[in-house]
Amino acid sequence: MTDDTDLEQMFAAARTQRDHLPDVLSARMLADAVQVQAEVLAPEPAARAGLWSQLRAGLGGWSGLSGLATACAAGVWIGLAPPDFLPDPVGLVYQQELEVDLIFGVDETGILTEDG
């Protein structure tokens, strides 16, 4: 019967082998370490500029962007409250619509009269 003493002897023998690391395995571990170190220490690639950043750059930066915003605001303001020396755009549109020649020069009133 194998007793505890025999088992302890077997464990002791196994312990003598626990510090063994095959050279090939050691080399594989170190190669991994070198690879990971290279990845960790490599500089981070510059982040790609977003759409807003690209648009801002295309318009000439913050100064270009502010100029564009000012021009837009001025356009809206002139549209809503034009200066006196400029024609009213709303009046121009309606005036053009009233002057549309519907039936080649025939008077609109005459047509209504003929129909009775």
């Binding site: 571990m29 370490a33 070198v34």
Partner: peptide
Amino acid sequence: LFANGDGQAARELTARLGPRTYA
């Protein structure tokens, strides 16, 4: 030290911990 790029640290850690991991 390893994370800071020390190659000797990698060798030391492999020598210390590699055998027990394998065993």
